[in-house]
Design a protein around this nucleic acid. Sequence first.
DNA 1: TCGATAGTTCAATAAACATTGAACATAGGA
DNA 2: TCCTATGTTCAATGTTTATTGAACTATCGA
Lengths: 125, 125
Amino acid sequence: MSRTPHHPTREQIELPMVLDCLSDPIRLAIVYQLAQQERVSSELRCSDFSALSGKSNLAYHFAKLRDCGLMQTRVAGTNRFMRLRREDLEARFPGLLDAVLSSAAKDADRLPLLPECELVEVDRK
Amino acid sequence: MSRTPHHPTREQIELPMVLDCLSDPIRLAIVYQLAQQERVSSELRCSDFSALSGKSNLAYHFAKLRDCGLMQTRVAGTNRFMRLRREDLEARFPGLLDAVLSSAAKDADRLPLLPECELVEVDRK
DNA sequence: TCGATAGTTCAATAAACATTGAACATAGGA
DNA sequence: TCCTATGTTCAATGTTTATTGAACTATCGA
């Protein structure tokens, strides 16, 4: 029924939940890929992550990433567009997201799923 | 038999394990307390954390913190002295530990166990 | 040598977690 | 209107996790 899934407010974002979310390799890869893509487009669709796992498993991880405040989902027709909640994260925990992302980038070849995170060509309206 | 418990080398420290370790409120409080204490003394004994949980549960969390490379245990007689592996963490993931610690400090009143982390008077030889 | 102190290890338990496939809902295009 | 594409939800499964208390080990000091 809910047009838009639930998201916590900025103030509701909690540090342990954020760290726990980022500690899962699939979720870290999702966040990493969203961050990679940010220069090109701030949003990606669920199907852009299909290299990482199956549909229903991804839906599970997307829900966790939303619940902890790391990303936001916008419903548009039959698609869901996801983007990082960069400003909210930065306001709550300054420097944290960038520190995690640069750590992940540094270890990209040692983290199982990051190499799959190639830039996706984005040409949607 | 092992005089000194096992610790990973600097290169063996893995990002997901570190983040997972820090996502637990008790372990985050242990790391936070170790960091607080650093100006005074770089080491604390297990019993200095007794406000956080029971002995055997603490031993469990200490083992996880050692296994992921966040801290080091030095055995001295009947005591174990723990300290943060700051330099190793900084070398592997620059800025990460400080970002987490300052995030925790910012939220200290919202994180259940951090207020218990008062400075402990250290006067041991 | 005895007793107290400091921690670890073990077994048991309950809760949370990740993963899978099947069923379902919704929107868009032929 | 039907078919297809996109994602979510649900139930089932097996794994990992945190927590507890009891038993154990090792060291220090009287």
